[in-house]
Amino acid sequence: MKIAIVHDNLVCKGGAEQVVLSFHQAFPKAPVYTLTYDAQNTYPEFKQCEVKTSWFSRIIKSEKNVKRFYFPLGILAMSQLDVTGYDVVLQSTTHCAKYIKTSPDALVITYCHNPFRLVWSTNSYEQVLKTGPLKKFLYQKVISVLKRIDSTSALRTNWFITNSTEVLSRIKTAYNPKNDITIINPSVKCNNFYLTGDIGEYYLVVSRFETYKKVDLVIEAFNSMPDKKLVVVGKGSREAEIKMLAQSNTTFYSGLGADELAGLYANCKAFIFPQLEDYGITPLEANASGRPVIAYGRGGVLETMIPYTTDSLKATAVFFDEQTKESLVSAINTFETLNFDASFIRAHAELFDEDNFVRKIRSFVSTKYQLKQAESESAWTNEPVKI
């Protein structure tokens, strides 16, 4: 069974990139194909992989420019990336991984983190909503082309996997898949994190600085609580704006090594997760460090966290109900009246450990490949498939 792994692009550090690393752990001999690769700004573990890129990577590497030149250059480059000759193509995607060339008889398995947001959730993009009539018209023309390409490319997928129930219905609506969709929750690498009794006086955010991540909401909350300390790790398109918003009780970091980041997780009072995510790995990383999470109580955290109701010693998180400064401040004040059990929180995170994810992915790929082989044999013999 010859396997190729395909991912949209490797230009940043995020949950989707961690899934690809887990794919590679499951199938260490499989090369990783991608639109473009920026070794300095994604996870260093990719240097141990055989990464194969499109011609786009020779001219575009930064995350900002990937977005700027995605249409039409990125689309064209990905559609020319050739992975014919592989028995199984295991894709990790939100947008362009499924555009690659595959053999007609290849088994194509797509781990869809979310249908292409620009195409299927256009109204979530401020630059589309808040632009003028002419530019909006041009956006809509481009989006209609992308929708046709995206839906046609999805037809090549034999089996879809996704990260949570939050996304499952979106995949059904966008792609109308031919087979049932399987949920395999992304993993956390528990071995990268540790517990310590030396808890600091700061709260922690680890996030990209993009609008939907709501880092500005956390900054505003802590601006109203100058006696509390906040540490923010990350970077992104709104970095300058968010740093300008912050007061002296907030400290920013970026480009940290794995050990430095693990230390910040282990010593924080709590991890703050203000955004609506389809899944979200960082709350589980905090839990793997024995630290509780203060989270907006919608989306993926409903599948990964145990919210406080009556017994904080059997909880991993405190939820807040609205994405407002007042709601977050109230949750922080509630948190400070509670006691949490670091060992219980760590044990909960271990249910999502990478070893479990790798085992499930290997089993899924193996089972579907055997089924495809049996179907091929039955086509020759006209006998029903037995598996």
Rank of each mutant, 00 (worst) to 15 (best):
P292W: 00
V293E: 08
I294F: 04
I294S: 05
I294H: 04
A295K: 13
A295I: 09
A295M: 11
Y296A: 09
R298S: 07
R298K: 14
G299D: 05
G300K: 04
V301A: 01
L302K: 13
T304W: 00
M305K: 07
M305W: 07
I306L: 05
P307R: 00
Y308G: 03
T309R: 10
T309D: 11
T309V: 12
T310F: 14
D311C: 05
S312T: 01
L313H: 13
K314H: 10
A315E: 07
T316M: 08
T316V: 03
F319N: 14
F319K: 10
F320P: 00
F320D: 08
D321T: 14
E322R: 14
Q323M: 01
Q323V: 04
Q323C: 04
T324H: 10
T324N: 07
K325E: 05
E326G: 06
E326I: 01
S327M: 07
S327A: 07
L328T: 07
V329M: 10
V329Q: 10
V329P: 01
A331C: 00
A331D: 00
N333K: 15
T334P: 02
T334W: 12
E336L: 05
E336N: 12
N339A: 12
F340I: 00
D341T: 12
D341V: 04
S343C: 15
F344I: 11
I345E: 01
R346L: 13
A347R: 09
H348K: 04
A349T: 06
A349P: 06
A349C: 11
E350G: 05
L351F: 13
L351E: 14
F352S: 03
F352C: 00
D353L: 15
E354W: 06
E354I: 13
D355I: 14
D355W: 13
F357E: 09
V358E: 05
K360C: 09
K360M: 09
R362G: 10
S363I: 09
S363Q: 15
S363M: 14
K368S: 02
Y369F: 15
Y369A: 06
Q370G: 13
Q370T: 10
Q370A: 08
L371I: 08
L371E: 14
K372T: 06
Q373S: 14
Q373M: 15
A374T: 03
A374V: 08
E375S: 12
E375Q: 12
S376G: 13
S376C: 09
E377S: 07
